[in-house]
Amino acid sequence: MVKQLLFGFAFLLLSFTAPEEYITRQGTVTFFSYTNVENIQATNNQVLSLFKPNDSAIAVSILMRAFVFEKSLMQEHFNESYIESDLYPKATFEGSIIDFDPSFEGEQTRIVKGDFTLKDVTMEREIKVKITKSETGYTIEGDFNVSIKDHNIKVPGLLSPNIAETINVSFNFQYEPYEN
């Protein structure tokens, strides 16, 4: 009887233990370039991110070719001239959330500090994020600015009025437990 009770208790404990790792395979990253000449927007809905709440750790991997533009010519310029996706296929972010409380139900605003790498240039960044815990997982959303000069993105003189020097990047990741 005692054995059965202990087994039942252990089973219940395991059932209620929160997963250690969460994943999104379909995170969204959108960037905006605002200029007087034209506004350019592209979205990538297939961004990979892993989140370990107990370690406050977050990792993001973005396939640059998976950004979708309104005009295919823009997409071609982006991949071939600006980002050089053949040479630098991914952008990545690895960081940790400062003062994050994984047990807090609901919404909390925190700073994520980490390394953002684009075109082999790594910059340390502090990004303000909104973290929401739900029954099924976590949502992390926020935005930050990227200077194209910082990442060696060269725009031909003729096109420079069309591309902003600072690009706004927004993201929304909806995580679910990772059963790997």
Binding site: R25, Q46, L48, L63, R65, A66, V68, P89
Partner: peptide, 11 residues
């Protein structure tokens, strides 16, 4: 085919 992260991605 666009490439591979953890998964293979096609658009």
């Amino acid at each position: 085919f666009k490439g591979v992260l953890l998964d293979a991605i096609l658009l």
